[in-house]
Nucleic acid binder design. Structure first.
Lengths: 207, 207
DNA sequence: ATCCATTGACTAACTCGTAAGTCAGCGATA
DNA sequence: TATCGCTGACTTACGAGTTAGTCAATGGAT
């Protein structure tokens, strides 16, 4: 097949290949139980090759985390492009959140690794927080504040804590991580229920 | 101090002591990185002692999980004792959920272990689901259905998916697991916001 | 176009440390 | 003194990290 890779091309691809393989292994086994040799075996190479590109297993792990951490900038652009009433935009924002968080396997498994290995690799948590979570919460908060200011959303405790508005997306993500395919949930209905609840909960009461 | 323990008493306590120590170690390091010798060291004994009570590290782990899994029966009783309108009872039920899930360190860390080790110990997930999650969801679902039937809650997607109603409790639990004390949240305000959102979202609209 | 010296990505077999599991013996208790 | 919970030194296996050596791609010379 495509055995036509020049040495330079192959070498350029190696780091990516290794990180992809490492991600699968770390997700499946966790950091401690993962063997560098198994990572290498996924590419059909040996341990030594991996050590040509990454000095230690620890460095490999941290590079792997960095490799799968999607930059938030793409999301930022999508958020700014939202149109319609505040309700419409919030709905779209939530759908976007589901897409990026529970819908994307990489991001989802990244959350698992944070929970499992975070205490031994604190910096992966700090990074994920400042690069992903904080901006997302800021966007939700800003949108809700605008909605309150315009009178579309009612003033209340919920409006000041954006976390409670996106909780169901976190919940679904955790659910999928734990019950991969054992106790499946109808995702479309779940998401619909969440949006229904949130919009009803935020809308200014018409008495 | 209390060196007055007879041999029989000491022996009777050992399993408990070991499981408590094992829990701390497994939570801190994860299954693979935990050393049986460190578990023993917490009690001031040696590895050999642990192996007198548990045949393998794996058996120790599973016993540890069983040891910290609180039976749901206590909660069941509390649920049945709830009083007041459906809103009142739902509020109390949510507070109870926070107490048992995010408030109780054991249950919280149990969730971490499920996420981290669940794929290698599937039975701990099945047990937790049937003994804790399913009954809790059933209780919430039943309460919401009653509320809908009585006209207090409005019929809608949210009413049929109890998961979305308790999501924030899951979210707070995850938050505490990841950001132990780094990015603290004002829990009281968070819970208040959640309840505010949910009750507003469920109440039948008065137009 | 063919040859050949050199490079360098990769391997295979090594060392070394560590951790699970074992067991003969010890010493406090009853 | 007999019991027995516990010890600590042992074996065994395994995995991280190392390194001398291999061989195919490469590119310059004829």
């Amino acid at each position: 097949m495509e055995k036509k890779l020049s040495r330079a091309e192959q070498k350029a691809r190696r780091p990516h290949e290794i990180l992809d393989a490492a991600f699968e292994e770390f997700v499946e086994k966790g950091y401690a139980a993962t063997r560098v040799e198994d990572v290498a075996a996924r590419l059909g190479v040996t341990k030594g090759t991996v050590y040509l590109y990454f000095p230690t297993k620890e460095a490999l792990f941290e590079a792997t985390i960095g490799h799968v951490s999607a930059p938030f900038e793409d999301v930022r652009a999508s958020i700014d492009a939202l149109q319609g009433s505040h309700s419409d935009r919030l709905r779209q924002l939530l759908l976007l959140g589901y897409d990026k968080l529970s819908g994307d396997r990489k991001t989802r498994e990244l959350l698992r690794l944070q929970l499992a290995e975070g205490s031994r690799f604190p910096n992966i948590i700090d990074r994920h927080y400042s690069e992903f979570i904080a901006p997302l919460l800021d966007a939700v908060r800003a949108l809700i504040e605008q909605g309150v200011a315009s009178g579309e959303f009612h003033q209340g405790a919920a409006a000041s804590i954006p976390e409670v508005v996106i909780s169901s997306a976190v919940h679904l993500t955790i659910w999928k991580l734990i019950f991969a395919d054992r106790n499946p949930i109808d995702e479309a209905t779940f998401i619909e229920a969440h949006i229904d609840l949130v919009l009803n909960g935020l809308l200014a009461r018409r008495r």
